[in-house]
Design a protein around this nucleic acid. Sequence first.
DNA 1: AAATTTAATCGTAATATTGCAATCATACGA
DNA 2: TCGTATGATTGCAATATTACGATTAAATTT
Lengths: 110, 110
Amino acid sequence: MGLTKTEFFTESQNKTAMLLKALGHPARVAIIEHLLKVRTCICGDLVNELPLAQATVSQHLKELKSAGIIKGSVEGAAVCYCLDESAFEVLAAYFSGVISGVKSQKSNCC
Amino acid sequence: MGLTKTEFFTESQNKTAMLLKALGHPARVAIIEHLLKVRTCICGDLVNELPLAQATVSQHLKELKSAGIIKGSVEGAAVCYCLDESAFEVLAAYFSGVISGVKSQKSNCC
DNA sequence: AAATTTAATCGTAATATTGCAATCATACGA
DNA sequence: TCGTATGATTGCAATATTACGATTAAATTT
């Protein structure tokens, strides 16, 4: 075990969980917030910004990128990273959908 | 290692990451979506609904509850669970903030 | 009281994540 | 071309997560 049984959940549930899991680490939240401030940056900038080694930052960037949360384009020797707006639109829509669903419920709890 | 360095991130970053991590599993997304449909349910309902054993479902419920995403109230021998609206309001506000931040940036990427 | 229902907890196994040092690969400048 | 800058990858150790069977505990039913 230790293996998530993704095959028994819907495509949508797996996709949503995958996005949220990718953001479910303070270092990756910090990367997002730094990109909100500076729009674009390279890995080295984040290594200076975060209390983590270069290998660790690179790994977090890889996870964010493979989840579709950031984009990276090669810029000479460096790689330029920026936010992928579409992922956040999906998540914002998801949560506003949840909220309107909750609000449409009669009472709050049992 | 294998230990997240939460002490080096802000309170807000840790809190956001904690909420997102709690939702970053398809079973827990499925639990949220089921609660959206039925408003309240007990653990046994979810055991019938999900392809997971009772102990596993109970563990997922515990994680959601300790993150503040669901509430549970004892109802005789059973425990009645429902969504905690406030957590979703925090997250919806977070993502709409991210989106307006991204939109205020000049160009999309480098 | 005994049996049943409900779900939390314990113990364990398998796998995933986090973090880092070291190394590797690529692009650029001297 | 040789050195330098940048960052991805590899290999490893420590810890966390996922899942489940078995057990436990509490409330309800018979």
